[in-house]
Amino acid sequence: MTGATKLLLIAFSMIFTENYVLVQFIAICPFLGVSKKFDSSVGMSGAVIFVMTLASAVTWLIYNFIMVPLHIEYLSTIIFILVIAALVQFVEIVLKKFLKPLYNSLGIYLPLITTNCAVLAVTLLNISNTYNFLESVIDGLTAGVGFGLAMILFCGVRKAIERAKPPKCFEGLPITLVAAALTSMTFMGFTGIADALFK
């Protein structure tokens, strides 16, 4: 497989066939918590895409240029979560200082991201899949885009639920979870497409 096709395959599978939220069950908490309002879904997705891309790049560099030479690969979980926490703080400070408009739209979501499982998952999976630098960055970016897609789609679904009237015991969370099941069923339709497209 050539480099470009591999990148396309990563991008396609991260957004559709291997979507973090709807197929792999990663980052369900913000998916259920934030998707109530359209504005916050978009803001959260933007912040996740931004941090995931950066985190993929930074952790790849740290792993391959610091941890591998020192033979401390087994510490990856500890080091990555600390790197992510520091990175989120750093991004927050930089945005506040230099990119005020971007900070105003993403700022409030940044503190929520340190403990977002998707960010830690993408950095660890980049390493276990032995991606190179460019592949890792694309993986982080498109996994974030996939998260955003799921989030915004589900936000629309929830808007429709609000107008529906489910049985009393299903009101609130249970019907939301059932709707999530139906949303994720649509993503099952993509299974197998990636293999056929990029063989």
Binding site: F25, C169, F170, F187
Partner: peptide, 25 residues
């Protein structure tokens, strides 16, 4: 098969919660 896949997980969790709400209610 679908119960073991992603949609089944969401569905069962939601239904379990609804059943608990109903039974305890």
């Amino acid at each position: 098969g679908i119960i073991g896949q992603t949609p089944g997980g969401f569905l069962l969790f939601g239904v379990a919660m609804a059943v608990l709400i109903y039974a305890l209610g």
